[in-house]
Design a protein around this nucleic acid. Sequence first.
DNA 1: TCGATTGTCTAGCGGTGCTAGGATTCGAAT
DNA 2: ATTCGAATCCTAGCACCGCTAGACAATCGA
Lengths: 192, 192
Amino acid sequence: MSVQERKQRERAERERLIVATARELAEQQGWDAVTTRRLAERIEYSQPVLYSHFRGKREIIGAVALGGAAEMAAAVRAAASAADGPRARVTALARAYLDFADRNPAVYDAMFQLDGGLAFAQEDTPEPLKDAFAALLESLSEVAGDGVHPGLFTEVFWAALHGLATLTRSGRLPPGDAERRVELLVDRLAVV
Amino acid sequence: MSVQERKQRERAERERLIVATARELAEQQGWDAVTTRRLAERIEYSQPVLYSHFRGKREIIGAVALGGAAEMAAAVRAAASAADGPRARVTALARAYLDFADRNPAVYDAMFQLDGGLAFAQEDTPEPLKDAFAALLESLSEVAGDGVHPGLFTEVFWAALHGLATLTRSGRLPPGDAERRVELLVDRLAVV
DNA sequence: TCGATTGTCTAGCGGTGCTAGGATTCGAAT
DNA sequence: ATTCGAATCCTAGCACCGCTAGACAATCGA
């Protein structure tokens, strides 16, 4: 059985390689540059190999998104746990979120802009996505305010962050006042 | 000269037809279905004709976006002017914005999700875009609060609306509680 | 050693945005 | 009325896309 196990390991390793390469290529040249041909060339296999791991390009995007969600959850939790007090935690969380989006635009797109074929806000939502939301919820429920459902508050806060992240990156908001916008957002939304 | 004038009129009319057809097709079947071939077929001309009006598909998206911006500005102003008091105006504005995004998803995408080659938040930003932002600013500056720059406040409020609009439509936020989210957002952001 | 299974590749399908270059139409000047 | 020149439009094609059928080679179990 050891031979089969080795093959399985190698297969899993190759799958990781595909996802990592897709992510790398997307961050370097944008998702438009991530074509099945280029991706196949980079991993030094032919195109059909991609389809033996994923149903199509969409699923590859989805795989990148899941990895990114785990990473973002960790980043948000790390930032929050390093801050003292609910208010400081929320500010740190907001900065960490926007920082992640800024540093990993392609991954962020895979998670929240592109179609990766993933289910959101449902029972069959993949665990990393649920957990990323949970990471936001943990710090945000502290400042939701009395009588306000923490989940609902988190959704609104998240939506605001998402709007800031996407509009800023696409040049639709001037890049300069990012920090002031974060402060205003936290000031108003968070109930001390 | 009348012949030339007629030709110019016909050309302008055909350009409107292209933009209207692109918008229609995008709303019916999504922007992916708006290919130069299909678009050319619908307007009953060959593909190269499109390129005598626009540099490429991107510019067509941009043209749709400009028309949409004018429409959205009007919708927002109409809703705001029908409400009494600053607080009610902002609620009406938020509902009108989200309603527009919901009813015209393809146009909304052309404006805020896709690349239409338009300049945002700069001097050379097209007038309809500036005016759409101005329409938000008019009602929102009433509730920005003392010492808060109205433009900055509008940016934050707009970003929140944009996040709600896009995350809801892509299924990343549960569709049910949309109204409650709007109320929470207005409650917290607007200074009565 | 042989047959079957697994793995991988070449080649190709129908589609995309975009364009070169030829054909046609049509106004204007003789 | 005829001819010339310019403007207009279309056919055909380029390089690329996501995806897949089917041929081929390598590997495994008997």
